[in-house]
Amino acid sequence: MTESELNVPGRVLIKRRQLLQKVPLCERTILNLEKRGQFPQRFSITSRLVAWDLNEVDAWIAEQQTAARRPGAPQAQPLSRSPSK
């Protein structure tokens, strides 16, 4: 990401902790999705700090919601409870 792209008015960057509060996935899953190009890419702010563009993350969440609502999309199944012993 270039310096001019980072200086876009209204751009909000979120750090790892904020991302994990917004997206209920573990860090490993997010990293795997990023590597496959299925999640917004992090970028380095400093040598020890990475961030994500909040607009890109929100767009990804909206895509997931849209995909889940399509006819034929797999639906979450209720957990079956085994009888207590």
Rank of each mutant, 00 (worst) to 15 (best):
E56W: 02
R48F: 02
Q18R: 07
V8C: 03
G37W: 01
Q18C: 01
F43I: 02
K35M: 08
V23C: 05
Q38P: 03
S84D: 15
V23D: 07
E3V: 06
K15M: 10
Q38W: 03
V8H: 10
L13W: 01
A62P: 07
L49N: 11
S84H: 15
L25V: 08
Q41L: 08
R48Q: 06
P40L: 07
D58C: 07
I30D: 11
V23L: 06
R81T: 03
R42M: 08
V8G: 01
E56C: 07
C26P: 02
E56K: 09
L79Q: 14
G10A: 08
A67Q: 12
T2W: 00
E56I: 00
Q21R: 14
L49G: 03
R42V: 06
D58A: 08
A68Y: 00
E27Q: 13
E3S: 09
P71D: 03
V8Y: 06
I30L: 14
L13S: 02
R16A: 04
P74S: 11
R69G: 12
V50A: 05
L33Y: 10
V8M: 09
P74K: 11
P71E: 03
A62Y: 07
Q64K: 15
Q75D: 05
L33M: 11
A51Y: 07
C26W: 06
F39H: 07
T29K: 14
I30H: 11
N32K: 15
R36G: 01
L31C: 13
R28P: 13
T2Q: 02
R28G: 14
A76P: 10
A51E: 11
L25W: 14
M1W: 00
R28T: 15
Q21T: 11
T46Y: 04
Q75G: 06
M1Q: 02
T46M: 04
R36M: 04
R17E: 12
L13P: 02
L19V: 09
F39S: 09
T66D: 10
R70D: 07
T66S: 12
E56A: 11
S4M: 06
G72R: 14
D53R: 13
L6M: 03
V12T: 11
K22V: 09
R16L: 09
S80D: 03
E56V: 01
A68V: 01
L6N: 00
N55K: 13
A76Q: 13
N55H: 09
I30A: 12
F39I: 10
S47T: 05
L79C: 08
E63G: 05
P40F: 08
E3Y: 09
P83I: 10
L33I: 05
R16F: 02
V57W: 01
P78E: 08
M1H: 00
C26L: 04
W52P: 00
P40W: 06
D53A: 07
N32V: 14
I45V: 09
F43N: 00
L25P: 11
R81V: 05
K22I: 13
V8L: 11
S82M: 12
A51I: 08
K35I: 07
Q21K: 14
K35H: 08
S44K: 05
M1L: 04
F43K: 00
T29S: 11
I61W: 00
P74C: 08
Q21S: 13
S4K: 13
D58H: 07
S82F: 14
S47C: 03
